[in-house]
């Protein structure tokens, strides 16, 4: 009896438990701090979602773990850095229109450049090792090292300050709660991207083929669809999404550095392990969990901030080894 109740209510109980858990930090801080942290956490979660979703779809469709994915994140940040440097007037102009314009240009540029990088990585490195996880990991790990070193050669080995468009700074004051502007923009961007991905996957023919491929790539081939073309396309889009995540994160943290990809790759891994490999919604949920937890714990117990995500990963692995939202496979 108890078991059937648990089965029926299991997911709802889990959601209720999660809500209670995420209200708990209120005990250690006042409400306005809590709101600030929550918004920062959601923003961070959305940016991490952009990285993790690509990793997750690539795994789901192609059964490839891409260790070079984090580097795409860093390239996105650096391409945006270059765009901001080149069109610095737009960044420093006190004009909402120009600021959003440059932000948009940076997003498009980062997406396109890194999508091309992703295509090259898929064609040159990954294409030869489909089917062997071990060699995929080794090859993409090698690719990660090489691409990170190329950043150091192209943009220099040092940390650089990432400028923030003027109107992105500042905040809104709503009922004495100070809400920073940029995190809200980042959250909006993440939601838009999530909606667009869902729309493409659910409503377009290509999206349906991709979803079918996640379940059974062999069958998709036998139906006359060139799966390798789709692989390359998905790899490119995944890399491009990571790039968008990278540039939003760079503006958020106001810095770019060559090793940033590695650090966020770890976050992305934790997220896809929590959310389930191959599921976009899982990536979103996992990313929000990680983003919120990180921010609450970083405020309450700063030295444990990274540890808490490892802890969550460990707990999820113990309860549900396939992650919260396992894909069709």
């Amino acid at each position: 009896m108890a078991q059937t109740i648990l089965k029926q209510w299991g997911s709802k109980l889990a959601i209720a438990g999660a809500i209670v858990l995420y209200l708990l930090p209120l005990l250690g801080m006042d409400f306005s701090t809590y709101m600030t942290l929550t918004i920062a956490g959601l923003a961070m979660g959305m940016m991490l979602f952009l990285v993790a979703s690509g990793l997750s779809i690539i795994f789901g469709l192609m059964d490839v773990i891409n260790f070079a994915h984090g580097v795409c994140f860093a390239y996105g940040a650096y391409v945006a850095f270059s765009v901001f440097k080149y069109l610095n007037a737009w960044v420093t102009a006190d004009s909402v229109f120009l600021n959003f314009g440059i932000f948009f240009i940076a997003i498009v540029a980062a997406f396109i450049v890194v999508a091309v990088v992703g295509m090259v990585v898929e064609r040159v490195l990954v294409r030869r090792v489909y089917g062997s996880h071990l060699f995929q990991i080794l090859i993409t790990f090698g690719g990660m090292v090489v691409l990170t070193e190329l950043i150091r050669i192209i943009w220099g080995p040092n940390d650089e300050v990432m400028p923030k468009p003027v109107s992105f700074a500042g905040n809104w004051n709503i009922f004495d709660i100070i809400i920073l502007k940029y995190p809200i923009y980042a959250i909006a961007l993440g939601l838009i991207v999530y909606a667009v991905i869902q729309l493409i996957l659910k409503k377009t023919k290509v999206g349906k083929i991709v979803r079918a491929g996640v379940e059974n790539p062999e069958m998709v081939q036998a139906m006359g669809h060139n799966i390798f073309l789709i692989f390359t396309g998905v790899f490119a889009v995944g890399a491009g999404l990571a790039a968008v995540g990278g540039l939003t994160m760079a503006i958020f943290n106001l810095q770019v550095y060559p090793d940033m990809g590695g650090a966020y790759l770890i976050f992305a891994f934790i997220i896809v392990i929590i959310g389930g490999l191959g599921s976009v919604t899982g990536s979103l949920v996992g990313a929000l969990i990680v983003g919120l937890s990180y921010n609450y714990v970083a405020y309450l117990l700063p030295s444990l901030a990274v540890g808490v995500n490892i802890l969550i990963m460990v707990i999820i692995l113990l309860i549900k080894p396939t992650g919260l939202f396992a894909a069709g496979k």
Binding site: R211, A212, E215, N216, A222, M223, G224, H225, G328
Partner: peptide, 30 residues
């Protein structure tokens, strides 16, 4: 395989290869 399929060969594999997460309509569309 995709070229062969486009020559006009249809294939029903042993495990049927149904895309379980897709609707019947989407299966047909793919």
């Amino acid at each position: 395989p995709y070229d062969i399929a486009r020559l006009g060969i249809g294939f029903v594999p042993e495990n049927m290869g149904i895309f379980a997460d897709l609707t019947v309509e989407e299966n047909m569309q793919v």
